[in-house]
Design a protein around this nucleic acid. Structure first.
Length: 710
RNA sequence: GCCGGGAUGGCGGAAUUGGUAGACGCAGCGGAUUCAAAAUCCGCCGCUGGCGACAGUGUGGGGGUUCGAGUCCCCCUCCCGGCACCA
């Protein structure tokens, strides 16, 4: 954990800025703190494999979860060594056992027992180990920090060559991950290469890719290649490829009892303890004689007390009335756990609780089995891994105790892009940033629309422009759509937001264009009323149509098809709205008052109202009752595509010469390929650009275009 | 640093399977209506050249594959999300 030595508190990663606590400014230390975990790793394989059974999930989310779980096939093996006359083993894990003959040193974490031992009589090393404990624990910090190390003076024995291999302490090796130790092959691992160059450690090439030349001077991409490389300088393993070498080496290690193949996961167990008030209390009682005892089922749930005083730290940690209790086992004096659960725990099953919110006997009941899984789940892409992986895990836990029956919680997933907005702040007197809401700021723009400065509306004084980030409470850059709702109504606000961008795309918030949505709804309202004023009629059901009405019905039914597909399959609402807008533009151009025209108009307007209802429900309900008096939109069927209306007699084909657009021809829908070619070659503009040369090739893409190659 | 996304007119975006780049909307410009304005309606609207017909050019940058690339492949830049205690 990140420990602030001044404030004596655990800090969230977000609260560690450049290795310092956000309030105290003190250098943060890494500290081990006892805590409770949920064993999500026991479900790693199922969580991974089931990703292939989630066709309704976006590919990118499945890929991210797959990479996060990070199943790897490698070899776990040991370097034997003697310590104070005793035989010991330094265990490491690698996915590149084929490079094992190129090991020139090992690196261990600062907290590794070997490092602790070596530091006993080595004050310089002890100081270095202390230094390694500084800084935050976030993976991003660890990955970007300068790689540092120091020799321990201890050597271990290479399990295959018998050579002595020096052991270093490395600030980039983590005790909590894997074995807390790694083998280093500088010739074939970029990080090890940099480390070896920096500390002048030997580099031994053991992989060769044909046609390449190895150089100690600089790292090259192929050094790390495991597809094309074969072993060299590796004795009996020379000439073997990656898979063969791993097999042979693993077998030899196994013979020596010093290792074997092993499957590993990047996924770690889920630490759920939080030293905060706000969260579900962890139901454990600490008894001096019985140890950690679970709170008996009949005393659950442990309820968070509400009569608390909030000042510094969690109030329940200073509240004897909460934590003083008796041991359920021995009846002696005991204390409740005062850590609470990560709020991700609750967000991992709330969706199931919705099926029985009134149940005060158990967390879920049979209704959960009836309703689940959730057909369509919607959440921000920022939850692609943590929340969605925890929820999947928790669902499987609930399945395994019989609370739910399905394997996965969410059948279809839509991950909406973040709504991002600029951030603004001032440096407060306490050194903390005061975040200012974009609505309270005036922006000055240059002629290219880029911001040049910003001032607070209230005092006209400048504020600092921060980055554009996802809207959040902590950065105070959220924008409330209430202002739009107040001015234009909820339908306009909904239409505008759905029209702005596809939902899975990130969107920089701006209310420019909201007028356009409002105008469109006014046009729709007027179009229906203009029609209804002349009396409602039965919608078109068949009969001869002139070319104009035929074209209109083509557009109408194309729109129905497109909107249905956009809503159902593509989940892209901006294009669905655009299709209806195009249709409305076409309807606006219709002249004529005859019975057939009015019937087609009735058909079109009825369709439009139903197509838009999911986006702008209020106005559509009102308009539907005008178009179909006595009927309710809520029970109206979704409009159906009339396939006959989609048949066109003639189609327009684009003509290209050498891939460049040079004109178009209109042909009958079932014109033969030869006839199309002849027509294209006869086109005056085509002849002009052919410059008298013969056509080498004519490509006809049915229904699309003709390309003449000369 | 690693993993996942993204970059297209002045702006938001469209182009779904490699086949008309810029749909739809905003802003802007011109016109109609009006005493005037608002509202509404009509037209124009990537860039360069041209009175124009039209031609050239153009989807972050560089290379490649293809009859044809916004779309596929390789390399690069920048932006956003996640990186296990923001949730």
């Amino acid at each position: 954990m990140n420990w602030d030595p001044v404030d004596h508190t655990v800090l969230a990663n977000e609260q560690v800025i450049d290795g310092r606590g956000w309030r105290s400014g003190a250098l943060v230390e890494k500290r081990e703190i006892p805590m409770y975990f949920m064993r999500i790793t026991a479900y790693a394989d199922e969580l991974l494999n089931e990703l292939d059974n989630l066709p309704g999930w976006p590919e990118q989310v499945r890929t991210m979860q797959k990479n996060w779980i990070g199943k790897s096939y490698g070899v776990r093996f040991a370097f034997p060594y003697q310590l104070e006359g005793k035989a010991e083993q330094l265990w490491v894990y690698t996915t590149r056992a084929d490079t094992i003959m190129g090991v020139t040193f090992c690196a261990v974490a600062a907290e590794h027992p070997l490092a602790t031992h070596a530091a006993k009589n080595n004050p310089e090393l002890a100081a270095f180990i202390e230094e390694c404990k500084q800084g935050g624990v976030a993976e991003a910090d660890l990955a970007t920090m300068e790689k540092k190390g120091m020799a321990t003076g201890i050597s271990v024995t290479h399990p295959l060559t018998g050579e002595q291999v020096p052991v270093w302490v490395g600030n980039y090796v983590l005790m909590g991950y894997g074995e807390g130790a790694v083998m280093a092959v500088p010739a074939h691992d970029e990080r090890d290469f940099g480390f070896a160059k920096k500390y002048n450690l030997p580099i031994k090439q053991v992989i060769q890719v044909e046609g390449e030349t190895f150089s100690l001077e600089a790292w090259a991409e192929w050094y790390g290649d495991k597809e094309k490389g074969v072993c060299v300088n590796s004795g009996k393993y020379d000439g073997l490829n990656h898979a063969q070498a791993v097999d042979a080496i693993a077998a030899d290690l196994k013979t020596k009892n010093l290792g074997d193949k092993q499957v590993q996961y990047r996924l770690r167990d889920w630490g759920i303890s939080r030293q905060r008030y706000w969260g579900c209390p962890i139901p454990i009682i600490h008894c001096p004689s019985c140890g950690d005892v679970p709170v008996p089922a009949d005393q659950l749930p442990v309820v968070l007390p509400e009569d608390v005083k909030i000042d510094v730290g969690s109030p329940i940690k200073k509240m004897p009335s909460f934590y003083e209790t008796t041991c359920p086992k021995c009846g002696g004096k005991a204390e409740r756990e005062t850590d609470t659960m990560d709020t991700f725990v609750e967000s991992s099953w709330y969706y199931a609780r919705y099926t029985g919110p009134d149940n005060d006997k158990s967390m879920l009941d049979g209704r959960a089995k009836y309703w689940l899984p959730v057909d369509q789940y919607i959440g921000g892409i920022e939850h692609a891994i943590l929340h969605l992986l925890y929820a999947r895990f928790f669902h499987k836990l609930m399945r395994d105790v019989g609370l739910v029956e399905c394997n996965e919680p969410f059948t279809r997933l839509l991950t909406q892009g973040m709504v991002v907005a600029p951030t603004f702040y001032r440096d407060g007197s306490d050194g903390k940033k005061q975040w200012i809401n974009p609505a309270d700021v005036d922006l000055a723009l240059d002629d290219k629309g880029r911001p040049t400065g910003a001032t607070l509306k209230a005092d006209g004084q400048p504020v600092i422009i921060g980055g554009t980030e996802k809207m959040s409470k902590s950065k105070n850059n959220g924008v409330d759509p209430q202002a739009i709702i107040d001015q234009y109504g909820a339908d306009t606000a909904r239409l505008f937001m759905m029209f702005a961008a596809p939902p899975d795309q990130q969107l920089e918030w701006s209310d420019a264009g909201v007028e356009g949505a409002f105008r469109f709804l006014k046009r729709l309202w007027k179009a229906v009323h203009d029609h209804v004023e002349q009396g409602v009629v039965a919608s078109y059901a068949g009969g001869e149509l002139n070319a104009e009405l035929k074209a209109l019905r083509f557009q109408l039914h194309s729109a129905i098809q497109k909107v249905s597909d956009d809503y159902g399959r593509r989940q892209q609402f901006n294009t669905a709205i655009a299709a209806v807008m195009e249709l409305m533009n076409a309807l606006g151009k219709v002249n004529g008052n005859d019975a057939t025209t009015r019937a087609v108009m009735q058909e079109a307007l009825e369709a439009v109202v139903r197509l838009l209802a999911p986006i702008v429900p209020h106005i559509c309900h009102a308009l539907w009752s005008e178009l179909k008096p006595g009927s309710c939109l809520g029970s109206a069927a979704w409009p159906e595509v009339d396939q006959a209306a989609l048949v066109q007699d003639e189609i327009e084909l684009m003509i290209q010469v050498n891939g460049k657009l040079r004109g178009s021809i209109t042909v009958s829908k079932d014109a033969a390929k030869d006839a199309i070619e002849q027509l294209a070659l006869a086109n005056p503009n085509v002849r002009k650009f052919m410059e008298g040369k013969p056509a080498k090739k004519v490509i006809v893409v049915p229904g699309k275009l003709v390309n003449v190659v000369v």
